[in-house]
Simulated assay, not measured.
Amino acid sequence: MIATYGCYAVAGWLLLIGSLGIARSRNLVHAVVSLSVAQSGTYVLLLGIGYQRGASPPILPAGPVVDPMVQAMTLTDIVVSATVTALLLAITIQVARRHGTIDPDELRALRG
């Protein structure tokens, strides 16, 4: 029971640290990495939800089994996170090429 609450605490801590990193970022690459840290909190949360003490894999059911849907959702979350991170880094490279900086405060051409 303590292990489950520990997973919730770690997931919340990762989300908080990532969100603070995004809010305080003065560099687009740092913001993307902070977003990735915040997204990793969802992996820990999903795995903490799906954890069952003494359960076996669903391939060889012998007694209680772990729900494979939570594991599939975690893998999907990892793939989506990697895709979002790659897309944001590609946009950061294009911004650096066009504007010569990755500091969000110096990107005056993007203001409306």
Score class of each variant (00 low, 15 high):
L28C: 05
V84D: 00
T4P: 01
T85H: 02
L47H: 08
I17M: 08
P64M: 15
V65E: 15
G6L: 09
R53H: 13
A23R: 03
L60G: 12
A96S: 15
S19G: 14
G18A: 03
V70F: 12
L110W: 00
A3W: 09
T42L: 10
R111G: 06
R26T: 13
G48K: 06
S19D: 05
S34K: 01
S40W: 02
G41E: 02
V79Q: 03
T74D: 05
H99S: 07
V70P: 05
D103H: 10
S81H: 00
A23L: 08
R24P: 02
A9C: 02
A72C: 01
H30A: 12
T101C: 14
I2R: 12
L47W: 08
R98K: 11
I102H: 07
L28S: 04
P57W: 08
L35F: 15
Y8S: 05
Y8Q: 07
I93N: 13
R111V: 13
L45S: 09
A31D: 10
R98D: 14
L28A: 01
H30R: 10
L35N: 15
G12C: 02
P104D: 09
A82V: 06
L87H: 04
T4Q: 11
P64K: 15
T83L: 09
L14A: 01
I93W: 03
A31F: 06
V65S: 14
L46T: 07
I49L: 14
G12D: 05
L16S: 02
T92H: 02
A38W: 01
D67L: 12
A62T: 15
G112E: 10
M69Y: 11
L46S: 06
L88A: 14
V44L: 04
I93K: 08
I49S: 01
V84N: 05
I2K: 11
G21E: 08
V79M: 10
G112M: 03
T76V: 00
R98L: 11
A3F: 11
L15P: 03
Y43H: 10
G21C: 04
P61T: 15
L110V: 01
G112T: 12
V44A: 09
A31K: 06
I91R: 11
L75Y: 08
S25D: 04
A3I: 13
I102W: 02
Y5M: 10
G100A: 07
L107M: 10
M69W: 08
A96T: 10
L45H: 05
L88F: 15
D103K: 12
G6R: 02
M1A: 12
I59M: 09
L47R: 04
V80H: 00
G48D: 09
V79W: 04
I78N: 00
T83M: 14
A55D: 06
G100E: 05
I93P: 03
G21Y: 08
A86W: 12
N27H: 13
T76K: 00
M73T: 03
G63S: 14
V80G: 01
I93E: 09
G54S: 08
E106Y: 13
V33L: 09
S56P: 01
A31M: 14
A9E: 02
A11W: 00
R26M: 07
E106L: 15
L15F: 06
D103T: 09
I91H: 07
G100T: 03
G12A: 06
